[in-house]
Design a protein around this nucleic acid. Structure first.
Length: 227
DNA sequence: CGGAAGATCCACT
DNA sequence: GTGGATCTTCCGA
């Protein structure tokens, strides 16, 4: 059961590419529409420093939230509450919120200050620090396969020790950075409707979910439409 | 001030 | 495939 089609998994970063891959994304990266940033984040690295350890993950699934015009967004109709305050920061900051009484979710704010665009980081694969991630994921993480550890927005936060303390953090600096990584090619990208937003009417069907096609760490159900 | 719902995950049938 | 866990946040009264 461990091996299936490996089509979209390839490309390990070569040793010589490490330096470029580990460069922090520049501010201009984030100052674009959420759907562009969401697509462009696939294959990038999320680096978390936690208790002296370096946890590194490659992003494989994201969702764009468009702000005031998007019924599924926490900033729909310009809503401003204490919880969503960090959504209105300039692109490149973190928006972290608590859901379902027990889970955290991590977003990357996009666009300019006041626009409230955001990208939900839904899934990643562990690149470094697996044993620490496994511990952070608790009893369940102890018995999961490596590719399941960060497969879901709340798993990603639990496995990388992300909670309210990082709400509003800028991604250019430790302890949480986004790095250039290993960007996905168009052929590797699958696009679909966002998860868990059935309440959002017409916006629920918008094609704003992006994933590496066929990657085992993408959460269910996997999007299939080609990008 | 009460009630409802939530950008989820997990265990179980 | 279904339901329970668990509690913050928000809105309406």
């Amino acid at each position: 059961m461990s091996r299936r089609s490996t089509s979209a998994r390839g490309r390990q970063p070569s040793p010589g590419a490490d330096r470029a891959a580990l460069t922090a994304l520049a501010p201009a990266f984030y100052r674009r529409p959420a759907e562009i940033v969401a697509r462009d984040l696939l294959g990038r690295f999320l680096e978390r420093e936690w208790r002296g350890q370096r946890l590194l993950a490659r992003l494989v699934e994201t969702e764009a939230y468009l702000g005031a015009a998007d019924r599924a967004s926490h900033a729909f109709a310009g809503r401003r509450t204490p919880r969503v305050a960090s959504m209105y920061l300039a692109g490149g900051h973190a928006y972290v919120y608590f859901v379902y009484g027990m889970h955290w979710c991590l977003n990357v704010v996009t666009g300019n200050k006041g626009e409230a665009g955001a990208v939900l980081l839904r899934a990643a694969e562990v690149v470094a620090g697996e044993s620490a991630v496994r511990r952070l994921r608790g009893e369940v993480g102890r018995r999961q396969r490596a590719h399941e550890l960060l497969s879901g927005p709340a798993r990603l936060c639990q496995g990388l020790a992300i909670d309210r303390e990082l709400d509003g953090h800028a991604f250019g600096a430790p302890p949480l950075r986004l790095l250039a990584g290993d960007p996905a090619t168009d052929a590797e990208v699958a696009i679909g409707a966002r998860i868990g937003v059935a309440y959002a009417g017409e916006a629920a069907a918008w094609p704003l979910r992006f994933a590496l096609a066929g990657h085992r760490s993408v959460s269910r159900p996997r999007p299939v439409a080609a990008g």
